[in-house]
Structures are given as C-alpha cells and as structure tokens.
Design a protein around this nucleic acid. Structure first.
Lengths: 366, 366
DNA sequence: ATGAAAGCGCTAACAG
DNA sequence: CTGTTAGCGCTTTCAT
C-alpha cells in the first residue's frame, strides 16, 4: 500500500491544502481579481490572459470554494426540500419536480426526510436556513398543532427577512401575515368527486380508510368525502370512517380486521393509493372480488394505481408540476428586482378523477 | 408596500441584512468569540453570560451562517448523492439509506439526478466538490467509456486531495490507483443463481430482456446469466438476448414484439424488476399465463415485485444498507485520525434470490 | 484590461 | 472564563 505523491493534487487520504485563487493567480502571473473574472465571465479579460489563467487552474486542479463565494456575496444557488419519506412516490415525484426545476436554474438541492416528525422538520428548516438556501420547500400535509404552526411562522419570517422563501407545497397557508408562498392542489374537491362517483354507481355504504387525523391533507379529503355524502342525502356513519396512517400496511391490516368483524359496505375509499393497495391485498386474500363484490378507489395516482389488478380508480395530482411550481414561485419573483412579488401568493393546481377498473355498480342490496 | 423595520428581522420581502455574530455580541455585551463559544458548546461559558447571549440571539432572530462557518475551518457536514432518477425505487431506496446515515451523523444531503447523462453526472460531481461535500456518492451502474472513466478518476483524485471521498455505490472500481471507496453487491452471482434456478425448473430457452449495453450493472447480470447457461451445457442463442433500457416501457414494448414474431421460449429474465413488470403486462394482455405458460423473473426486489400477480421471483439487493454503508465507508475512516483508512477499500454486500410465484416447471416441450 | 485592498461571517489561537 | 485578532477564499469597488 505504498503511495508516492506523483500527481499534482497530493498523495491522497488526508486533507491537503487545496489550491486557491491566490495560487492560481500566482502561477498565472495575474491578480486574484483577474482569476475571479475569468471564472465568472462577467467582465472582459484578454484572451491571452484568460488562457494562462485557465491553464493554471487546470494544472493546479483548482476547484472554486462555494462557501467563500457565497460568503463574498453571490447567491449560493441552493434550494432545500423537506419531505417525510423519499421512497414514497407521492413525495418522490414532487421532489423530482423540485430537483429538475432547480437544476435547470443552475441550483443544487439539499434534501432531507423527517419521517413524519414535526420536530425534525423544524430542525431541518433551520439547517437549510443556516445554509442560506434560496428557498425551502416543505412538502406534504402539516399537522394541526398550535405551537408547531407558531414555530413554523417564526421560521418563515426569519427566512423571509434574509431574502429566502418558505414554500408550502401541498399544505395550507399559515395565514396572510406570514410571509410564505404556496402551491396547493384540491384535496377536498377531489375526494368529493370520487365519493360522488361512487354514489352515482349506487354505493351507499362507503368505507373510508386511512389518513392521519390532524394532518391537513387527510382532513381535507375526509371533509370532501363527507360533503358528497351529505349532498346526496346519505347518512354519515362513524362506523365507516377509519382514519390511520397513509400506509399500505395500515390499509391491509385494517381491511383484514374490518372484513372479519366490521360493518357492511359495498365500496372502499382509500385515503391514498398506498392505503388502497393494502386494502386490495386484504380483499384479494379474503377472496373478495374487486369490483364485482366491492368497489375500491384511492387518491394520488402514483404508479401502484396502475400496477394493481384491477387498475385503481383514483384522483390524479400533478405531483411533478407542483414541485416545479414550488421553486418557480419562490425563485421567480425574488431576484427579479423587488417586482412586487406577492409575498404570500398561493398557486392552486387542478386535480381530476382517473376512472379505471376498480369501481362497478353496487350489488343489489340484500 | 412601505416597510418600517418594526419587527426585529424586518418586514419581509427583501434581503435585509441578517444579524451576525457581531450584532449578537454587541447586544449581549460580549465578544464574538464568546458568542461562538455558546453556539458550539465546545468551551466553558458562564451560565449568566450564556443566558444573555442566547436571549440576544433569539431577539435578533440570529441564524448562523454555515458558509462562514465552513470557510473558517469546520467541516460543512454535507454529503452528496448523485443518482440517475429519484422516482425509481432502486435509487430511491439507496438514497434513503444515504440520507438516513448522513442525517444521523448530523449531515445534510445534496442530491441530484443526471437522468442517465454521464456529462451531467460529471458536472454534478464538480458542483458538489465546489460545495466541499465530505463525500460524493455515485449511485448505480456506470457507462463503459474510456474518456468518461478518465475524467471520473481525475475528479476522484481532486476530491481526495481535498480530503473528500468519491464513493462508488453499485459500480465497479476505477482501478487501484484511483482513490475511491466503494460499496458493491453481486450482479453476476445473482443473475447466475436466477438463471440456474430457471434451468433447474426445466427451462432451456430463456429470453433475456433489458439492461443497457455498456452499463456495468447490465453487463454483469448478462454475464452471470450466460455463465449459468454454459455451465449447464445449454447453448447461448443471440436471438434470446435483448438488451435495452432498464425501463418498464422497454419491457412492455419488446415483449409485445417478441410475442408477435420472436423465437420460442418458456421463461423470461427481466434484467430488473421494472423490465419484468413491463413484460408481465404484455404477457397478461396477450393472454399468456404466468407461470403456467411462461415463467418470469426480475432483479432488485423493489416494491413492484410484490405488487405483481403472480408475485415476482427476483434477486434481493440490500439497497438501503448499501446507501448507509456508502456514507459510513466514506466518513468513518476520515475524521478519525489518519488511521490508515483504506483509500480504495470496497465493501461487498450479499444478494439472494427471493422465490415467489412467477416461476413454474417448464411445460413439456412440443 | 488589470491590480490593490476591503470586506463577507465565523472560528481558533493566544492573551489576559 | 472572556476578549483580541488573524485569517478562511472569494468578489468587488476603486484605481490605474
């Protein structure tokens, strides 16, 4: 394992001193200002000089220090994304939108997963603020807790005071007096449409499964569901509402229990596709046919919806687009002058039902 | 839109001057050194003083500037992840491992997707180097191109010279003289085992579908497949090998074509689960039963493998664990002294077949 | 077209 | 226990 520092750049392993502008300047026989100018191409430099500087940089293996650069004034070209779980397609697609939009704007993304813990979420916002991210995108529903919201508002103000923006992506605003921007989609309306679709097919007893109580997304969907019931004059039976995690596992387990000793129903509304997928598995294992015996719907239209057999009827959300808009709405109106960028603007994206094969007319009542 | 610095921190919208250590120090009536000490808790400070400083920080809405901190010496506590696609579960699970391990070590992750473009990948490595990431994790197979590899080696050396590490996660080493660390799993062996499993079940004509030619992962899997064939004395029919993207779409389309006018076969080996999922759909639509008529296997054991009906027999890779090890192997032996951390160590993780329901004995030959 | 020098905000010796 | 001070590497006026 012998090693002999032959190459410029050092012999590896330790933290040798990296080349700096000063080194480059010296080697090229110019001033540091000139080096800076050739890097940033924002000022005329003689071709010959540029040539020498660039070759010096190459020879030294020079790589500019982004921290020094950020400190000296330039934006650090970073946007932060905070999600609860990276492997969940719902978040993954939004994150992809954020990443692509950021990347196209020459920015890099800081990402982190709080795994459903509001405290971690808050801590991550702080970390990204320390890094002076141009924007911090908070993805997904938020918990309904007074102290938490107050803390969030405080962070939003701090961020704003420094010229950054807190972006609420898929969650309600914190109030007009809190400087945030947002990108939303319609949870209430989508759920309403879905339940209405079910009712139209003759379903009157619809099992509602999943959605953490206290999470904004879950709350809105449930409200939409109830509104549809009400509008059609159907009773709301608490026995049919089963809040819980947005997870496949929950959908599966609860469905198994309910199949064993639950109330009667002809359709199942999974609060998201994951829950519906879990329910589908339980139904399958119990020998219940979808949609002949029981109809099933989900929400989000993530890939699993098309993977399921029968394919799942669900609500499509423009996930990736939301991610893109999140950074656009935060960055777009921020460096362009102070062009009256709405400090508290909220963009609302549309959703729509995707009818596939998991819903049929309700069986004749016994 | 008048603004009147009423609140500490300003009234929002623009880039007000943020509070700095100097401001805090002044307000608390101490020196900046003391402020630094209370923040870092790395040096004794009188309780009363600390109290005053902390309250000053609160009052000013002070948030430390990570760039200044990084510049002044401390590590910036960042690890970079470079994947080709965030929403692909293969990458998502590895990324999750990286993120969790990093997060547990108090680090934040920079992430980016090159979408299969080696040039973008290289560019991102540079960007992360500029940010002085402690480690840059390159995830997934690499293209077999001389110039590309040389460039990668150069970047690895630069990174190493600065005390960072390039981590090769799921791709071959660049050679003993290139300072990288790596975490691998066995592509060749897993494919060998899978094909052998198929042969044991009486299959002699196995269609091999997908895997971009020139991508290391794809190459190794194909080699394993061929070796199993050879070892059992089965002929290798070029007609049965159909390289292509690692995508569901490719699996579907090519399967459709092959079903129409391809050679005879009794089993399909999808180079990964995505391809297998696509093939499964084509098979289903063509009325071909799996596994009675045709057996099907995949690789990776991502969630879709369990979603498919019948459930897919595949090879399990410890995806998340690979991600965790990637940062461990890069960070672990780096700040602990210069404890002869192997500069070019490669960790190899095990894989194993997961037998589910998509393989049956080959139908009697007609 | 190029150079000199003043910071950016923080940490880390080194003194008290 | 606390203050002073010298950088860290880069950008950016202001000169030349």
């Amino acid at each position: 394992m012998s090693r002999q520092g032959t190459t410029a750049g050092g012999a590896g392993g330790g933290a040798q001193r990296r080349a700096t502008v000063v080194d480059v300047a010296r080697l090229a026989g110019v001033s540091t200002a000139t080096v800076s100018r050739v890097m940033n191409r924002n000022y005329p430099v003689a071709a010959a000089t540029r040539e020498r500087v660039e070759s010096a940089m190459r020879e030294l293996g020079y790589v500019v220090n982004a921290h020094a650069r950020a400190l000296a004034g330039a934006s650090n070209r970073t946007v932060g994304i905070i999600v609860s779980e990276l492997v969940d397609p719902f978040y993954a697609y939004i994150a992809r939108g954020v990443e692509r939009e950021a990347s196209e704007g020459g920015r890099l993304c800081l990402i982190c997963c709080h795994q459903g813990d509001p405290q971690r979420e808050l801590a991550f916002i702080e970390l990204m603020h320390e890094r002076r991210a141009d924007a911090v995108v908070l993805v997904g529903g938020s918990v309904d807790d007074r102290a938490y919201k107050a803390e969030l508002a405080r962070r939003a103000r701090e961020l704003d005071a420094g010229g950054s923006k807190l972006v609420l992506c898929g969650r309600p605003s914190l109030g007009d007096d809190v400087p945030t921007v947002g990108v939303e989609y319609d949870n209430e309306g989508g759920a309403f449409a879905l339940t209405d679709h079910l009712i139209t097919q003759g379903h009157e007893r619809i099992l509602y499964l999943g959605g953490p109580p206290g999470l904004s997304t879950a709350h809105d969907r449930l409200v939409g569901h109830r509104r549809a019931l009400e509008l059609r004059g159907l009773p709301r039976d608490p026995q049919l509402e089963h809040p819980g995690p947005f997870s496949r596992t929950f959908g599966y387990r609860r469905m198994v229990e309910l199949l064993r000793d639950g109330p009667a129903f002809t359709a199942v509304f999974g609060a998201n596709d994951n829950v519906a997928a879990g329910a589908a598995q339980a139904l399958e294992e119990a020998g219940v046919r979808v949609p002949q015996d029981i109809s099933l719907v989900g929400y989000d239209d993530v890939p699993v919806a098309q993977e399921l057999r029968p394919r799942l009827t669900t609500v499509r959300i423009p996930l990736e687009e939301m991610g893109r808009q999140a950074v656009r709405v935060a960055i777009g109106g921020d460096d362009e002058d102070d062009w009256r960028a709405p400090t508290t603007g909220t963009l609302r994206l549309g959703t729509h039902i995707v009818v596939r094969d998991s819903v049929a007319r309700a069986p004749r009542r016994g």
